[in-house]
Computed example of a mutant assay.
Amino acid sequence: MYECHIWLNILPSPNDRALGSFERFQDGVKSLKKRLQTWDQWDAGLDAACITKTSRGDDQLVYNSYVKRSSELHGAIVMLISSIAHEFPGSFGIMYSMEDDIENMCSVGYTVHVVRRGIVEERKDTFLSPYWGMIEDPPVEGVG
């Protein structure tokens, strides 16, 4: 199984706050909404992506997924957030993803993609991953 959660605030570059640039930014967000509605990577009924408004009025991409296919979907989602980071360099956010590897439970955990200033960085999660000893004991050899 593959699990993925994204919270990404979509903002223009701080240098693009001029009136004409902001109108282009708003058009870009409208275009992104249309692109998300027709993106062929979503599994019908299992994935949900939407762009909502935060309490400050910023646009925010929210995505949650728990699906069987993983490798092609993961690559496509990373490419999507990378393109958003490039197109909207003032954006910031985070993507948590995990592939459930039943045969090697101790090595699985969330991978984190941090988005800020037009760059996407991949990191290992040390807080939420479910297979750390503080949350769940590692499997004991010969038991169960």
Rank of each mutant, 00 (worst) to 15 (best):
Met1His: 10
Met1Glu: 15
Tyr2Trp: 14
Tyr2Asn: 14
His5Met: 10
His5Gly: 05
His5Trp: 04
Ile6Asp: 02
Ile6Thr: 06
Trp7Glu: 08
Asn9Asp: 04
Leu11Asn: 15
Leu11Trp: 00
Asn15His: 08
Asp16Gly: 08
Ala18Thr: 12
Ala18Met: 08
Leu19Tyr: 06
Gly20Asn: 10
Gly20Met: 05
Gly20Pro: 02
Ser21Tyr: 01
Phe22Ala: 04
Glu23Thr: 14
Glu23Asp: 15
Arg24Trp: 00
Leu32Met: 08
Leu32Asp: 02
Lys33Glu: 14
Arg35Gly: 03
Arg35Thr: 13
Arg35Trp: 01
Leu36Asn: 05
Leu36Glu: 01
Leu36Ser: 07
Thr38Asp: 08
Thr38Trp: 00
Asp40Thr: 13
Gln41Trp: 04
Trp42Phe: 13
Trp42Ala: 05
Leu46Pro: 02
Asp47Arg: 06
Asp47Trp: 00
Asp47Ile: 03
Ala49Pro: 12
Ala49Gly: 15
Cys50Ser: 15
Cys50Leu: 13
Ile51Lys: 09
Ile51Glu: 04
Ile51Trp: 09
Ile51Arg: 15
Ile51Gly: 11
Thr52Asn: 12
Thr54Glu: 00
Thr54Val: 11
Thr54His: 10
Thr54Ala: 08
Thr54Pro: 06
Ser55Thr: 15
Ser55Tyr: 03
Ser55His: 12
Arg56Tyr: 07
Arg56Asp: 05
Val62Asn: 12
Asn64Lys: 12
Ser65His: 03
Ser65Phe: 01
Tyr66Cys: 14
Tyr66Ala: 07
Val67Ile: 15
Val67Phe: 00
Val67Cys: 10
Arg69Leu: 01
Arg69Asp: 05
Arg69Thr: 08
Ser71Met: 05
Ser71Thr: 10
Glu72Ser: 07
Glu72Trp: 02
His74Glu: 13
His74Ile: 06
Gly75His: 06
Gly75Leu: 08
Gly75Ser: 13
Val78Gln: 07
Val78Trp: 02
Met79Arg: 11
Leu80Phe: 09
Leu80Thr: 06
Ile81Thr: 09
Ile81Ala: 06
Ile84Asn: 07
Ala85Phe: 04
His86Trp: 01
Phe88Val: 13
Phe88Thr: 04
Pro89Tyr: 02
Gly90Val: 03
Ser91His: 05
Phe92Val: 07
Phe92Asp: 07
Phe92Arg: 10
Gly93Glu: 01
Gly93Pro: 05
Gly93Leu: 06
Ile94Trp: 02
Met95Ser: 03
Ser97Met: 03
Ser97Asn: 07
Met98Ile: 06
Asp100Cys: 03
Asp101Leu: 09
Ile102Trp: 07
Glu103Thr: 05
Glu103Leu: 09
Asn104Ala: 08
Met105Ser: 11
Cys106Val: 13
Cys106Pro: 09
Val108Gly: 04
Val108Leu: 09
Thr111Val: 03
Val112Lys: 09
Val114Asp: 05
Val115Cys: 14
Arg116Gly: 08
Arg117Gly: 14
Arg117Asp: 04
Gly118His: 03
Val120His: 09
Glu121Asn: 11
Arg123Leu: 15
Arg123Pro: 02
Arg123Ala: 03
Thr126Val: 06
Thr126Ser: 15
Thr126Lys: 14
Phe127Asp: 14
Leu128Ser: 08
Ser129Lys: 02
Pro130Phe: 07
Pro130Lys: 04
Tyr131Ile: 09
Tyr131Cys: 11
Tyr131Asp: 07
Trp132Tyr: 08
Gly133Gln: 12
Glu136Gln: 10
Glu136Tyr: 04
Asp137Met: 07
Asp137Lys: 08
Asp137Leu: 11
Pro138Phe: 00
Pro138Thr: 03
Val143Gly: 03
Gly144Pro: 03
Gly144Glu: 06
